[in-house]
Amino acid sequence: MNIFRFAGDMTHLISILVLLLKIYATKSCSGISLKTQELYALVFLTRYLDLFTDFISVYNTIMKLVFIASSLAVVCCMRMHRVVRRSYDKDLDTFRHYFLILASFVLALLVNEKFTFQEIFWAFSIYLEALAILPQLVLLQRSGNVDNLTGQYVFFLGAYRAFYILNWIYRYFTEQHFSRWIACVSGLVQTVLYADFFYYYFISWKNNAKMQLPA
């Protein structure tokens, strides 16, 4: 484990904590896409099928459990919690996320490291994660305004992606036989999707103003 990957994991963890904080503290999920959250829950559930078959480290196992539990907690809260559910921007969150699931699954059947149940779902989770932010970005684009905690949430998610790319560059130069082009290409695509959001995030940060996205 290198410092970049650790920083990536931590910013990922922080992003989830910020999201939970927003929902629990404000009892509101406005600005948060339920579809993106459902996709993330699916991503973690399908990627960590190896939880019981391959042991890597205590750190990995705990983080996997945390990611699965937290993503399910967010989805349940947005769907079930009486007060939180009312603040959900249902009319803005209309992205057809089933297409993302379908496209990722077809791609996973075609491009995978090995044609086995676990490997296909692993590839599927990697592809789906790259696209899962789209409903969230579309929702923010449509609502125009981005509240503080939602902005921080997406910022930390983007930071996680950026650190993972630095991690791969580091590993490429320090490890022999480092080849994981499925994860790297998908990760790169995922990070590029955040570029626009980052641009407006930094503008609002520079001007010390509330974040706004152009219509």
């Binding site: 994991d9 391959d54 990995n60 996997k64 490291e113 993972y164 994860a183």
Partner: peptide, 10 residues
């Protein structure tokens, strides 16, 4: 092994 190497990240 190769498999472990490629899935050691989160």
């Amino acid at each position: 092994s190769n498999k472990e190497e490629s899935h050691d990240e989160l």
